[in-house]
Design a binder for these strands. Structure first.
Lengths: 122, 122
DNA sequence: GTCGTTGCAAAGCGTTTGCAGCCTA
DNA sequence: TAGGCTGCAAACGCTTTGCAACGAC
């Protein structure tokens, strides 16, 4: 049976408050203000469980550490700024990608990564 | 100045012969048939240099080790089978993704990852 | 009081680096 | 022959795990 702890709540709160996917270090720093002394292993363990439960989705971009965001934000994609390296959520999507696949392949999911300059850096 | 070695040639040959992006271990195993005793550090060093030179492109997918493929294959994307975990090149693409971005953002590149079942597993 | 959770430190694991010897040019 | 390249092993950084203490229920 699962218990509600201060540490776990702090991590969840940070994910809820985050405007964009959080890296492990960002999460650790942010959650420590609510749960002082929070250890990094605890963040790893909780994130792992949240991902298994489907509450959190890992966001992986090339050349970057993994980030995490809450699931259930609706279908969206990600944009990374080449200069400031921030990652933004892009709520839009494009229709039917199935026609890209060769005959006989079945499409179940897709991920679109966009790269460029954000408004602040452009 | 750069020297041509048996090991480097073996790695290049394997990349040329590969029908899909190769992981480091695949590359090591394959290249050893042409360069026995090949060490993993040598594969890392050569791949790193090839990427810096722009001859090779890293292909990163979530939950998977990095793979590598030759650059200059033209613009394309990748498909990973959920069951056999093979990664296929998808030569197709979709036009203009710039309209997905918020006002003021500039799009420079994109990557599309597709997931599902390949023909053999479907 | 039980037992899931935590923090610390050690262990794992993939990648990088230092170095002596090798081999290309 | 000079110096770039290789293989080995050690070092490194990030993630996971073992374990005793803690604290939610």
């Amino acid at each position: 049976m699962q218990r509600q702890t201060n540490q776990r709540a702090a991590i969840e709160d940070c994910l809820h408050a985050a405007p964009h996917p959080m890296s492990l270090d960002e999460l650790l720093q942010a959650a420590r203000s609510q749960a002082p002394g929070l250890g990094i292993a605890t963040v790893y363990r909780n994130l792992k469980r949240m991902v298994e439960e489907g509450a959190v989705v890992p966001v992986v971009l090339p050349e970057e550490p993994a980030r995490y965001e809450l699931a259930g934000k609706g279908h969206h994609h990600h944009f990374r700024c080449r200069l400031c390296h921030k990652v933004y959520d892009i709520p839009a999507c494009i229709g039917d990608l199935g026609h890209l696949l060769p005959e006989g392949f079945r499409l179940e999911a897709h991920e679109i990564l966009l790269f460029g300059l954000c408004r602040a850096c452009a």
